[in-house]
Design a protein around this nucleic acid. Structure first.
Lengths: 126, 126
DNA sequence: CAGGATCCAGGCAGATACTG
DNA sequence: CAGTATCTGCCTGGATCCTG
């Protein structure tokens, strides 16, 4: 994904398209807030305000912005209940669940290596 | 990681510390360039300039900045050969390899769902 | 070649106010 | 309650120049 080199040949055109799309998606998804949102939703169904409370430090704006992006890419479903006051619920799509598994992996990794990282930082300080 | 709520009790103090550290690491690592660098290095040993060539679009500054960060957190090893001209090589540490596995997962996921995502985007456009 | 330092523009993100 | 819109500051990240 990162290393692919293309020739100028025409049959590489669609490969190049796929690759640039992959890059674009990766750029969308590989950001702190998006991943935290995916982690937070998990297998549940959460309302906008619930998400806002669950994810410490996220602003109203970042939450909506990233939710739109995730919806656009088919990672979250957004269902609006036309009641008053309105009720909007978010869940992960199947694709979203797939991604979540890898994010879970990242979280596990983080917790498993907390000690290593603290050590590394101490060494780096010197 | 995202949802944890703490009481004010003192025995939660270290839990809170660990959690905030985890958050910090996650924020460091869950960014586009860091993950692309980890992916690019893989199991190889690459020089600064090689990395710069492999990772399309990364600037000199972003590369050094992220490499320092990854080194600080013990994810990459940096070895300087005191020749002239200097030769600096980067490899993943064991911890780095662990993280790479999850990043590989993300890349796989991306490629597996390219079609889904294109569809989702088309639907979203309407 | 590797990378630090500096300058500067553009975009990101927060705060606030307003709608359905 | 959920969301859009606008304004603004700042901080990220690119370009450039300089060292060992």
């Amino acid at each position: 994904m990162v290393t692919k080199q293309f020739s100028g040949s025409p049959e590489d055109a669609d490969l190049r398209r796929a690759d640039s799309l992959a890059r674009e998606i990766f750029s969308d998804v590989a950001n702190k807030w998006a991943l935290l949102i995916i982690e937070a939703v998990g297998e549940r169904t959460l309302r906008f305000s619930e998400l806002r409370n669950e994810i410490e430090g996220i602003s109203h704006k970042m939450l909506t912005q990233n939710l739109r992006m995730l919806e656009r890419n088919g990672l979250v479903d957004r269902s609006v209940h036309p009641t008053v006051p309105p009720r909007v619920e978010y869940t992960l799509t199947e694709a979203g669940q797939g991604l979540r598994k890898t994010v879970d992996g990242m979280c596990d990794w983080t917790h498993r290596h907390l000690g290593d990282i603290e050590d590394a930082r101490r060494r780096f300080g010197a």
